[in-house]
Amino acid sequence: MNIAVLSGKGGTGKTTVSTNLSLALNANYVDCDVEEPNGFLFLKPNIDNVYEVEEEYPVINKEKCVGCGMCVKVCNFNALAKVKDDILVFDKLCHSCGACQYVCKFGAIEYKKRVIGRIESGSAFGINIKQGILNKGEPMAVPVIKKMLSSINRNELNVIDCPPGTSCNVVNSLKYSDFAVLVTEPSNFGLHDLKLAIELVKMFNIPFGVVINKDNGEENIIKKYCINNNIRILGTIPFNKKTAELYSKGEILYFDRDHKNIFDELVNNIREVLPWS
C-alpha cells in the first residue's frame, strides 16, 4: 500500500507531513524528492545500504561507424551530433530510448552505463527509510524515481514524499500510489496550487484527502473549498511559534507531546478511507 504525499508548490510542509506520518503509521518512508531530499535531515537514519542508479547511453564504435549520421537524425533529444565524420554523444541529454542503436545498420552503437544518482536506505525510530538522490547537474530525475519506486514492496505500508509541483516527476511518483495526501496552506496561492494537485490525482483516479498546514484554527478558503467540493480534510497542522521552532531545529513533531495527536488523528482519518490490515 503506497501513500503519496504531494503539494502543488514548494515550501508547504510536504516533508513534515510525510516524515511524521511515516512514524505515526509505522510505515516505510520513501523520499522521492530526489532533487532536494530533505526527509533524512529530520529522521537522521543510520544508512546501511547505498546503491547506484545507472542510465544507459550510446557509445560509438569508431571502427564500425561509417559516419552516415542516421543516429543523429533519429535522436529527438539532441543527444547526438555529427562533426565532420565523427559522431559525438552528449550523455546527459540521452533518454536511453534505443532509437540510435535500432537504426544503425553497421552495429556501431553499443550501450554503456553511467551513474546518475543513488539510493540510500537505512532505518530510524524503528521504520525503514529510503531516499533517492540525483547527482548535481543531472537533468533527468525520472529514472531515479522509477528505480526507487519499483524497488519498494507494495504489500508493505509506504509513505512516498513526492517532488513539489505537478511536473512529470510527480506523475511518475503517483503511478505507484494507492492514496494521496495533498498538503497545502491557507492562502490563495495555496488554494490555486492545491487545485492543480487535485486535478492531477483525479486523472489517476487515486483517492485523496487534504492536510492544511499553518492552520490557525479559523475558517479559511481551503476549508471552504474542501467542504463545497466534498473533499475530505484529513487533518490540520497549527501555525504557531512552537511548531516553527521545533521545525527550525530539525526536531520531529510526532515526538512532541503537543503535536503527536495531530498525526495520530491523520492516521485514523486515512484508515477510514483506505482500510488496511
Binding site: F77, A79, A81, F90, L93
Partner: peptide
Amino acid sequence: SGGGAGIAAAQ
C-alpha cells in the same frame, strides 16, 4: 527543441 537547444543550433 525542448532540450539540447545549443546542440541542435550548433549542428
